[in-house]
């Protein structure tokens, strides 16, 4: 039996990923390595933010008339956020930003393709729209993994370091907890474990083309989906939420 609160929790997982990653990408505004990249990062951020708003608006409707996409985004503290640890990691250098994006994009596309067949029509509709945007994101980030991996000695070294450093945050994308299991059984959610093989195949092929090595490390960090985050999320929220918190009740 799927309680509304369980569906809401699942929607927060979907929405918070896009929201936090868009927030990270927006930090690049005006500072990207080339003007063309500034435009591209903003496009990806806009797509992710747009998707996040759709997921959060749905989650807010389940919560009740006093909730909205904004109350969910601006008035929850870090432990109530349900995003993956991967998306809250720092931008770092461009290799790190692109490696984070690449890991996420490959997974995101697989996830949304699965959700497009959800028995929940609203979820299926949002996923079907989002998957087209995300296909473009994945092409772009894979392109950069290859350019930097097979670029200069310096870029190769930086891209390999980024691929290695972010690897431990990829594990929780594929583990299903009790909530996932219940929603999978109801035909609402997509089974994350089933995404692992195709994800690994795509990631492996891209790293291969880039002359990069697939990390061998086995230990994976986890907890984002359950609200146990890294220290970084608190700072992201402090910046993102300050206005609505400093002026309670104001409309903008």
């Amino acid at each position: 039996m799927v309680e509304p609160s369980m569906l809401q929790e699942y929607l927060l997982r979907l929405g918070d990923n896009g929201l936090i990653l868009a927030q990270r990408l927006a930090e690049w505004s005006g500072k990207a390595p080339a003007l063309e990249e500034d435009m591209a990062l903003a496009n990806v951020a806009l797509d992710l933010l747009g998707q996040a708003r759709l997921w959060l608006a749905y989650a807010a409707e389940i919560e009740g008339p006093d909730a909205s996409e904004d109350t969910l985004a601006y008035l929850r503290d870090a432990p109530a956020f349900r995003n993956l640890l991967l998306v809250e990691q720092a931008n770092g250098n461009y290799a790190e930003t692109m490696a984070r994006q690449f890991y996420f994009d490959v997974w995101h596309k697989l996830l949304l393709s699965g959700l497009a067949r959800s028995h929940d029509e609203r979820i299926a509709g949002i996923a079907a729209k989002a998957v087209k945007e995300v296909a473009y994101h994945g092409e772009r980030s894979a392109g950069w993994v290859i350019r930097l991996g097979a670029g200069t000695a310096l870029s190769h070294q930086r891209m390999q370091a980024a691929i290695d450093d972010l690897w431990p945050y990829t594990g929780e994308m594929f583990t299903a907890d009790a909530l996932d299991q219940a929603l999978i059984a109801a035909g609402i959610a997509c089974d994350p474990a089933a995404l692992h093989a195709p994800w690994l195949e795509k990631v492996g092929a891209t790293l291969d083309a880039a002359g990069l090595t697939l990390p061998a490390a086995k230990w994976m960090q986890s907890g984002g989906k359950q609200g146990r985050h890294s220290e970084r999320l608190g700072y992201i929220l402090a910046e993102m939420q300050f206005l609505p918190r400093a002026y309670p009740g104001a409309a903008w």
């Binding site: 063309e36 435009m39 591209a40 473009y136």
Partner: peptide, 20 residues
């Protein structure tokens, strides 16, 4: 016009810049 290191990047940048 725009600047890009290769055709794939040029195509993506064209989409971002001229079809917003």
């Amino acid at each position: 016009s725009l600047h890009a290191s290769d055709a794939a990047m040029a195509m993506q940048a064209a989409r971002n810049l001229y079809t917003r």
